[in-house]
Write a protein that binds this DNA or RNA. Structure first.
Lengths: 107, 107
DNA sequence: GCGGCATTTGGCTAAAGTGGCAAGTACTTG
DNA sequence: CAAGTACTTGCCACTTTAGCCAAATGCCGC
């Protein structure tokens, strides 16, 4: 694999990695449903330390998956790229496959 | 977040994590194009130790993303769930977004 | 059964990711 | 300007992951 190809997959991996965490998937899912949420709302739903949630959000932002905007002293996050929501359908297919069900029907 | 929700996102994260690596993304991409590849072919394309490639493949298999079948003394891997190939389109959208281009056109 | 090829597994070390607390920044209200 | 709320960042202990080598397994043809 030459350097260019390598770089291509590394770039992609950075995006996938950014979502490879239960809390971050939850955030993406939530934002795909509600358009916008402030850190405090997400923190309450998630039930972790606010600093932890904030770090997850920074990570998603660095990957280009979410965008933020500050209004007053609150920061609102939203999806930057709507299609990430589609990921879930496919992930569920994989999970159904794991459970040994209708793998064929998912094409 | 109650235990059940937590479990749901952990299950999803396991699948996403399985793809969160340049080599494993390469494998998924390659299998989406060529249907089937043996470990030795993938190893050669990737240029890492065969044991390393084998571990990446086991990981993808454990996540339900690929399936294997042994013929002779070779093992062939293929995608178990075709839709994972679609991931790439969306990932590319995120990457284009990162580069500051037409974020709007990607809906 | 023996040597050889394809692949997997174990062991190890280096590196990365996670999460909480505490400290810092930013804005807002009295 | 002081105090409070909303968030971010630094630090640190801890867990997980990655990749190589070496050893083990499985299948073949002789």
């Amino acid at each position: 694999m030459d350097a260019k190809t390598q770089a291509k997959y590394e770039a992609r991996a950075r995006v996938v990695k950014a979502m490879a965490h239960p809390t971050r998937l939850f955030i993406v899912d939530e934002l795909s449903r509600r358009d916008e949420r402030c850190v405090c709302e997400l923190t309450e739903m998630i039930g972790a330390d606010i600093s932890t949630v904030s770090k997850h959000l920074s990570l998603l932002k660095a990957a280009g998956i979410v965008e933020d905007s500050k209004r007053g002293n609150m920061v609102f996050y939203r999806l930057a790229v709507p299609c990430v929501a589609q990921f879930f359908n496919c992930i569920e297919s994989v999970l159904r496959g794991n459970a040994g069900q209708s793998r064929r029907a998912l094409t």
